[in-house]
Structures are given as C-alpha cells and as structure tokens.
Simulated scan of single mutants.
Amino acid sequence: MKPKVPALAIIGLLAGLLLTGCDDKPTEEKGFAGLADDAADYAQVTPGKPFVFPNDHGPHNDFRIEWWYVTANLTDSEGQSFGVQWTLFRNALPRPKGLQGDVSGWSNRNLWMGHAAVTSEDEHFAAERYARGGVQQAGVTLAPFAAWIDNWSYTSQSATDDPLADMQLQASGPQFNYQLHLKATQALVLQGNQGFSQKSEQGQASYYYSQPFFQADGSIDIDGKTYQVSGPAWLDREWSSQPLTDNQTGWDWFSLHLADGNEVMLYRMRQKTGEPYLTGTWINKDGSVEPLAATDIQLVPEETTDVEGRDMPTRWSVKIPSKALEVEVEALNPNAWMNLQIPYWEGPVSLSGTHKGVGYLEMTGY
C-alpha cells in the first residue's frame, strides 16, 4: 500500500523549501494540506463579504491559498467522451513585518502551481508546473484578465462587463495538449451563503464562486491523435486562509451538469472522527441558486476501484430528495489518477437515473 498523500499537501512544503532562503524556516504543517495551521498572519474569511468584480477574479494576496480551476466534459463527432482539467494554485507564506502588498522579485511570498490533465475512457495523462511569484513565471492579471504559469494560460478574449465570459484555455504535457474556447451562457454564481462557503461545524470557510455555464469547443491531442470536441465546462474560484480543521482528512467534490440545464455542486469533507461534513448548491438553469444543507444531500460511495494501491470510490449514489434527484454517478475512467508530486483522483463522470448528465469528481486524501 502506498502512503496516502492528500492533494495540495505538498504546496506548503514546497513553499517552505523554495522560499526558506528568503528569511523564514518552514514549520511543521498541521492537518490536511497544512490548511488547519494557525491563520493569524493572514486575512480571515467572514460572512457578508461584498464581492466586487472584476477585482475578485484576481489574486487575494493577503489570504493563504486560492485557485482558478477549470474542468470540461467533452465529446467528439463520433460521440467519444473526454475530460479536461486546468488549475492554477496560489499559495502564500506569511509576510515578514513591514512587507506590504504583492512585492516583485525574490521577496515575493507567493508560490504558484499548475495542474493540467486529459482523460478518455482508456487513457489519463496529467502534468504539473511550479513557479515563484514576482518573477513573471506565473500570475493573474485583470486588464485584460490572464491567468498563466509558463506557457499554460487561461485568458480573456474580449473586453466586456464580464471578463470571464469569453475565454481561451490551453495547456500541454508530454502526451497531450489542448486548446479550448469557453463561452459563458449565464452570469457566474456565488456558492454557499452569498459566496461564504462553510467547510466544517467549527466554522472554517472559503470565499467561493463558480461559472458553471460555460460551453467549450476546440481540440485536444492525446498521444499524437487530435480530436475536435465540444461540451459543458465549469470554473471554480476559491480562496481562504484556514478552510479546514485538523480533523478533516480530505474531500470529495462534485460538479454536475444536468441534461435539463440545471447544475449541482457538492462537497463531502471526510473526517478522522465523526460523519463527513456535507454542503452544496443547486443552481437553476436561469442562474438562480439554492444552498443545500447536509440534511438535503445523500452522498454514498457504492463501488471502489483499486487505483495505485488505494480504494477509490468510482461509483456513487447521489440523492437530493427535495429536487427529486436520484442518480448514479460513475467515472468515465476509474483510473483517472493524478500521478504527480501531489497525487489525487480527478476525472469526468456520467449520470444515470432520474436525471441524465455529466460532470467532474475530485477526491483527495485517500
């Protein structure tokens, strides 16, 4: 059995290793991915934040961790299914006293990490990038909007009131590359309580919004073969400083595109002791949202697959009785293992039952 390393756990470690030479020595992490560490040196997540766009599309350098996260469920002209993932993570070390703002050069306190992957029914390939902040290796700008790490990028294609409404996405690895155009059909949505997404009974939380109404088209290349593809895509944006407790071992996250035009987001935060913490959002096809409490959600693993020595739940029963939703969620490729420095499972899923649809599943900490 291989050691169980949770997704993102290595971010804090690498931040310490890469930035130790600047001034601080890395300290031992507590809890899942170090995200239960004391957050006194960072900004705090509190209810009632007024979201301001486009500013909140950019970095929040006073917070410890944030990400720009895109997934797409795609098909080609022959009906073959594929999945694409693109993620940019920003992680910050505490600032020394007297150091304000997002400084340039080697005094910058940010570490950037990129993940990209493509998945088909038979294959799954992933790649990663790491970069220091302040030296133009990676970052996010607002005018125009661009998120990048090396030559991977997620960039705005038109100047509109919503800079994320028309996007170009690209990344590559040794055995894959993709170029996708993403066009939003509705406004973005705030998750949780007006963007305040609670992650534990103790009150840990993140700021969280999504664009679940992207339509994507473009090309993907897998092992030298090119496919013209299209389908729904989803952007997640989260930032926090202490989103988890040291009792939480990882999460199972679902983004579901229902065939009737509605969307669903579900989080299942697993704990060392006690029942998992459940939260979610029902997103109506008109863009209005309905927060889901734990009592609204039934989320049960039904079948596991041995993946790299881990029992990964690759078929789930998902029920939301108030919405008459009762579906089986099954992985397109049960072996969609992100075999990177930070190993975790991430891949496309399909739905059957009372509702048809597709989506994405991320499982960390197994």
Rank of each mutant, 00 (worst) to 15 (best):
V5C: 01
L13M: 04
L14V: 02
L14I: 08
A15R: 12
L19S: 05
C22K: 12
K25F: 12
P26W: 04
E28M: 10
E29D: 14
E29K: 11
F32T: 10
A40H: 11
Q44P: 03
V45D: 03
T46N: 00
K49R: 15
P50Q: 14
P50S: 13
F51G: 08
F53R: 13
F53V: 08
N55D: 14
G58R: 10
H60I: 08
F63T: 07
F63C: 05
I65Y: 15
N73K: 03
L74V: 08
L74N: 05
V84F: 04
F89G: 05
G98T: 06
L99W: 06
D102Y: 10
W106S: 09
S107M: 12
N108H: 11
M113P: 00
A116P: 12
A117S: 15
A126Q: 09
A131W: 01
G134N: 14
V135G: 02
Q136W: 10
A138L: 03
G139M: 09
V140D: 04
P144T: 07
A146I: 05
D150V: 02
D150Y: 09
W152E: 04
T155Y: 01
Q157V: 02
S158L: 10
S158M: 05
T160I: 02
T160R: 15
P163W: 05
P163T: 07
P163I: 12
L164T: 13
L164K: 09
Q168P: 00
Q170W: 01
A171S: 12
A171D: 05
A171C: 06
Q175S: 13
F176Q: 10
Y178G: 03
Q179H: 14
L180P: 09
L182C: 06
A187S: 14
N193P: 00
Q194V: 00
S197V: 06
Q198M: 10
Q202G: 09
S210L: 05
F213L: 11
A216W: 03
G218M: 08
G218C: 10
I220D: 01
G224E: 06
K225V: 15
K225D: 05
K225L: 07
Q228N: 12
P232F: 02
A233S: 14
W234F: 08
R237M: 07
S240D: 02
N247I: 06
Q248D: 07
G250K: 08
D252C: 07
F254S: 08
L256C: 11
L258W: 06
A259L: 02
G261R: 08
N262F: 04
N262I: 03
E263D: 15
V264D: 06
M265W: 07
Y267G: 09
R270V: 11
R270D: 08
Y277N: 06
G280Y: 02
W282K: 03
I283E: 02
I283K: 02
K285D: 12
G287I: 04
S288N: 13
P291N: 07
L292E: 08
L292H: 05
T295F: 01
D296P: 08
Q298K: 15
Q298A: 12
L299C: 13
L299T: 06
V300I: 15
R310E: 12
R315H: 04
I320T: 03
K323H: 13
K323S: 03
V327L: 06
A331W: 01
P334T: 02
P334V: 07
Q341Y: 12
W345M: 04
W345K: 02
E346N: 04
G347D: 00
L351A: 07
T354W: 07
G357T: 03
Y360E: 01
L361A: 10
G365F: 05
Y366V: 09
